[in-house]
């Protein structure tokens, strides 16, 4: 026994320390400062200051109507598309204000892609055409379309499932596959930031797990902002979490800390289910 113990001691290696998800302080890819947004006279955001860490996943949580979807739609100038909607304050992308004079919203949206709640492949297009649709709408013709389709579909782990039926309609796929197709369509434009507005709320648990796995994968190369009603999902996929309530940012913290030791009592009440 003592020999075994001595042997195991001599062979023992230092136990690797599991680093927290955000082990290295990342840079700031985007940052909102004093961001206010309105729908007509109704104010949806009341002055948000929130940095978004580069190549990290930030989850936005909060009850319905708290402004979380409005916030992400301000990040790629989609908010102003709604009639009567406007925003003030600044949102920087690599330090440059995307609301600055002369900034083309189309160029902003190319760099800041978006995936929506309900999978929305173009119904009249094939799987292949759907992947290329974003590029074509932007007037770009890729040098090697076939390679781009394959790369984009591989990034979302859909290639092996659809490589033999690229000409079939995008809508012939299951809901989870359609959502991954929509993510592939967004990634084909090579964005730097990907906004995901409740991307799994219409999916079953298996399809949800695949999307979450995908977020882990691509989250190392893209700055991702995900809006979710599912707090367990926020806890699973994100490095940072921001809690919005009634148009205000209540707390922004590393996710591990947010779900074990939130500092604001409103956050505590919301995530433990004590609201309403």
């Amino acid at each position: 026994m003592s020999m075994m113990m001595a042997q195991s001691k001599s062979e023992s290696q230092p136990i690797p320390v599991t680093p927290p998800r955000a082990a290295v302080a990342p840079g700031i890819k985007m940052e909102a400062k004093g961001l206010k947004a309105w729908f007509g006279k109704s104010q949806a955001l009341k002055g948000i200051d929130l940095p978004l860490a580069e190549n990290q996943v930030t989850a936005i949580i909060g009850p319905s109507g708290c402004g979380k979807s409005t916030f992400v739609r301000c990040l790629n100038r989609m908010h102003e598309v709604v009639p009567g909607a406007h925003a003030t304050g600044t949102v920087t992308l690599d330090g440059a204000d995307i609301y600055g004079a002369g900034t083309d919203p189309v160029l902003v949206r190319r760099r800041v892609g978006m995936v929506f709640q309900k999978p929305n492949p173009f119904p009249t297009m094939s799987i292949r055409e759907n992947v290329l649709a974003g590029l074509r709408l932007n007037g770009r013709r890729p040098a090697d379309a076939a390679a781009l389709v394959e790369t984009s579909l591989r990034q979302v782990a859909l290639w092996d499932e659809v490589k033999d039926r690229l000409d079939r309609a995008g809508t012939s796929l299951s809901g989870g596959q359609q959502q991954r197709l929509c993510i592939a369509r967004a990634l084909a434009l090579e964005p730097e930031v990907l906004l995901m507005d409740e991307p799994c709320s219409a999916l079953d648990p298996i399809a949800t797990a695949r999307i979450e796995e995908l977020i882990h994968e691509i989250g190392q190369r893209y700055t991702i902002v995900i809006v979710t009603h599912n707090m367990q999902q926020a806890a699973r996929v994100s490095h940072y979490t921001a809690f919005f309530y009634m148009g205000e940012l209540i707390e922004h913290a590393p996710t591990d800390r947010m779900f074990t030791q939130p500092s604001n009592p409103k956050t505590e009440d919301y995530i433990t289910g004590r609201f309403g």
Binding site: F259, T260, P262, E268, I271, T272
Partner: peptide, 9 residues
């Protein structure tokens, strides 16, 4: 319940 925060603690 997947408790979090003070419930988890």
């Amino acid at each position: 319940r997947q408790p979090v925060a003070s419930d988890l603690r």
